[in-house]
Amino acid sequence: MRKTALITGASSGIGRATARLFASQGIDIIICGRRKERLQELQQELSTQVDVHILAFDVRDKAMVFKGIASLPEQFSNIDILINNAGNAHGLSPIDQGDVEDWEAMIDINVKGLLYVSKAIIPSMIANKAGHIINIGSTAAKEVYPNGNVYCASKHAVDALNQAMRIDLHHHGIRVGAIHPGLVETEFSEVRFKGDTEKAEKVYQGYTPLTPEDIADIIYFAVSRPAHVNIADLIVMPRDQASSTIVNKKLS
């Protein structure tokens, strides 16, 4: 019997790469995101391999999250795998110069959005006495770097919630784990720098960053382990990255 996975933040980056890999492995998918046109394109691409359902919502919108997940057709209502991938960084400023709206966006997406989606799906996993939740964190969940303040705080919260979920849900037969990527070349920096493409591109110059496909491979590895194996917490960085602030860049 084929499994079903729900992936948030599936319209780009790690989420999209994970949807493609899952589809290639015969996992039916529910792809979630704000950009419906991108989701429709991805659905068209992958629907020749597996069954694909779209949920177009912003994880910050509690009502939309619960309504969307409650509206899933019977075929997609039994979710075996949840990939809590949606997340963003907004701005890179000292705490005294931070934009309150940026703070709220990061907390609402990275923390509250993860909670809303999890809250909507966990009850059915408990009823089934099975399920697998992968929370996508960041190396920022493990260390704080200059000007990272609220983003780092939000990812530290993801780390704490991942541990709490594992403690609270393990006796229901639910596996919970987190993957914490370092520098991955996605739209992440373009969002952080509010569309400043030149500034965003410099983040990934002078070394070979991770790709979304690298992280998708690791996610699939985690969810494809035997039922008694749980990858609880994993940090992955490109070879040239030693920490959030130490990167071996060879710039000309």
Results as ranks from 00 to 15, higher is better:
44 Q>G: 11
134 I>E: 04
55 L>R: 11
145 Y>E: 14
124 S>E: 11
3 K>C: 01
53 H>D: 07
95 I>Y: 00
211 T>M: 01
55 L>V: 05
199 K>G: 04
29 I>N: 07
23 A>I: 11
221 F>K: 13
83 I>V: 06
187 E>M: 15
189 S>I: 06
34 R>I: 05
60 R>F: 09
86 A>G: 02
234 L>R: 12
238 P>L: 03
42 L>S: 04
246 I>E: 04
157 A>Q: 03
159 D>Y: 09
108 D>M: 03
171 H>N: 15
22 F>V: 04
70 A>L: 08
184 V>Y: 02
172 H>S: 13
96 D>R: 00
193 F>S: 11
125 M>F: 02
7 I>M: 11
85 N>H: 09
226 P>G: 12
228 H>E: 14
48 T>K: 15
244 S>K: 12
135 N>F: 09
25 Q>N: 14
131 G>N: 07
235 I>Q: 13
183 L>G: 08
155 K>F: 06
26 G>K: 06
80 D>P: 10
45 E>I: 02
111 V>Y: 00
1 M>Q: 10
198 E>K: 09
123 P>T: 06
136 I>V: 05
48 T>S: 15
154 S>T: 10
162 N>D: 12
152 C>H: 06
60 R>Y: 10
19 A>T: 11
38 R>G: 03
9 G>A: 03
240 D>T: 06
127 A>M: 05
63 A>C: 13
36 K>M: 05
80 D>F: 12
192 R>W: 04
89 A>P: 02
50 V>C: 09
140 A>D: 15
158 V>R: 01
104 E>K: 11
79 I>P: 14
47 S>Q: 06
56 A>L: 04
89 A>G: 10
20 R>D: 08
6 L>M: 13
150 V>E: 10
55 L>K: 09
240 D>L: 10
36 K>S: 07
123 P>R: 06
44 Q>D: 15
44 Q>V: 13
29 I>P: 03
1 M>S: 11
133 I>V: 08
12 S>N: 04
126 I>E: 08
205 Q>H: 03
157 A>S: 07
177 G>K: 09
90 H>N: 15
40 Q>S: 13
46 L>V: 13
178 A>M: 15
199 K>Y: 11
212 P>Q: 02
203 V>M: 03
39 L>D: 03
82 L>P: 00
164 A>P: 04
148 G>R: 02
223 V>S: 02
141 A>E: 00
93 S>E: 09
2 R>N: 03
249 K>G: 01
197 T>F: 08
218 I>F: 11
32 C>L: 02
96 D>W: 04
128 N>L: 05
189 S>L: 08
71 S>L: 09
147 N>R: 11
9 G>L: 04
147 N>F: 13
29 I>E: 02
